[in-house]
Design a protein around this nucleic acid. Structure first.
Lengths: 101, 101
DNA sequence: GCATAAGTACGATGAATGTCAAACTTCGAC
DNA sequence: GTCGAAGTTTGACATTCATCGTACTTATGC
């Protein structure tokens, strides 16, 4: 298992890529759950209706778009929402989406 | 040619549908051009790199999502950005997107 | 009426992409 | 070391969807 997967820097964020990440309902649900949570969440603890391999795929897409940061704790992969970074790159976007019902 | 095509009401706007409409670069370009323009724009006057039939498809998607309002003037179809309606349904979303570079 | 302009409708096609199962890897616990 | 838990990797598969060309419709202008 790779130690720390690659994360893009804010300067590399791409709107197209972020929107493609957020257009999928499962991925948007992940973002919403992270937004609502007080602490980081491990991959296995999300409430999503897909298999583990599909989940892995979705987390990769979110990470590569810059929406989440991932790091290992034992065999678990923890996830953090990169709020500040997203706010810097695309002001108001994440707020508008998490507040939209 | 149908007189006036069906437009959804604000109460019927659906975030998923709006995001699916906005994730396409051509459609987002249409929205951006409308946002930057002072007046309504007819379908044929947009600067988009697709055929007429494809353009029609994109305008339909935008209209059905509630992003634009369309009406005929002769054989031309005019387009307006439904800013206020979108702001009411999803506050901040359109602004965040049109301002994102 | 006729020609032209502006879109629309209809298939057809090709490329993405969300999905899963199965096999594999890593780490922690015992 | 062995086992189980947690993810990952790799194909394979199905569906969606952007795209186009062609034929059609509607309206304007002469």
């Amino acid at each position: 298992m790779g130690r720390t997967p690659p994360h893009p820097e804010v300067s590399q964020f791409d709107l197209q890529q972020v929107l493609e990440a957020l257009v999928d309902p499962v991925r948007r649900s992940i973002v919403t759950q992270l937004d609502a949570a007080a602490e980081d969440i491990k991959c296995g603890d999300f409430d999503i209706p897909v298999s583990k391999s599909t989940a892995t795929h979705h987390f990769n897409v979110l990470r590569e778009a810059g929406l989440i940061r991932q790091y290992y704790v034992g065999t678990s992969r923890m996830n953090t929402l990169r709020r500040a970074d997203m706010e810097e790159a695309f002001p108001g976007l994440l707020d508008a989406l998490t507040r939209a019902r």
